[in-house]
Design a protein around this nucleic acid. Structure first.
Lengths: 123, 123
DNA sequence: AAAAATACGCAAATCATTTGCGAGTACACT
DNA sequence: AGTGTACTCGCAAATGATTTGCGTATTTTT
């Protein structure tokens, strides 16, 4: 099944991927249609196997539904995304829950700026 | 100029608005085209008068470029957004800056869950 | 007032993603 | 093996937010 192959690409990727990136990767091995990729992705997200996050560029990024919570530093110059595991948000989330009664189940956090590499070149 | 009228709608709104919401609001007073709203919005964002944030629903939300940093609690049930000013992120941002050399200039944070109102009804 | 610069409307284009539909494939039960 | 039911896919067309080209107003500058 193509679902397994698509899921494997996500599993083996250290960073989150767009549907198109996944499509390009999978296409090297098998014949697959973009809509199949999208359908499969939605399927995996529904089953909580994959996490989908929409970034400021309006593109959805997919990664293994994880356990290890990550956030991204996105360079506004080169557009690369660096991940960080720094996240004190659970603490904040708990606080908000307590103070507002809002039952928080997830959050997304995106930092924007210029990465060290680009900083060098710009200077 | 229509720009002023559009800007005023944003100024007078306590929460962030979509282009369509702004369009609907402005349309009550004057004759305006949706593309004008979008063009104006982009203009205001460029001039740092307005902040644009793309949420998980892939829709752009606009609000007064602010000083007071806000984040949103978005209810996955009723889709209402509640704002909170809780944000220890500047601290985290500084830490990341120090440890990675990444020059962070902005960030977006979005909490998802179920609001107290919906929690009542679901139970 | 003429020239140069903006602002705007309208229709068409974009782009990521979704969907309808029809054909192919797999599994289950008789 | 035969039939039925349920997925899985490909393909083309649809979606929906946003952008863009272009021609026409309206404003600003000189």
């Amino acid at each position: 099944m193509k679902k397994d192959i698509i899921f494997n690409v996500i599993k083996n990727s250290p960073n989150s991927l767009t549907a198109e990136e996944i499509y390009n990767d999978v296409s090297q091995d098998i014949d697959v249609n973009l809509s199949t990729v999208y359908r499969t992705l939605n399927n995996l997200v529904e089953k909580d196997l994959v996490t989908k996050v929409v970034r400021q560029d309006k593109i959805a990024y997919y990664e293994l539904a994880n356990n290890e919570h990550k956030h991204y530093l996105i360079c506004d110059n080169c557009n690369n995304a660096y991940s960080t595991d720094m996240c004190d948000l659970d603490k904040i989330a708990r606080k908000i829950k307590k103070e507002t009664g809002f039952n928080i189940t997830s959050h997304t956090l995106e930092f924007h700026g210029i990465c060290p590499e680009c900083l060098k070149n710009v200077k």
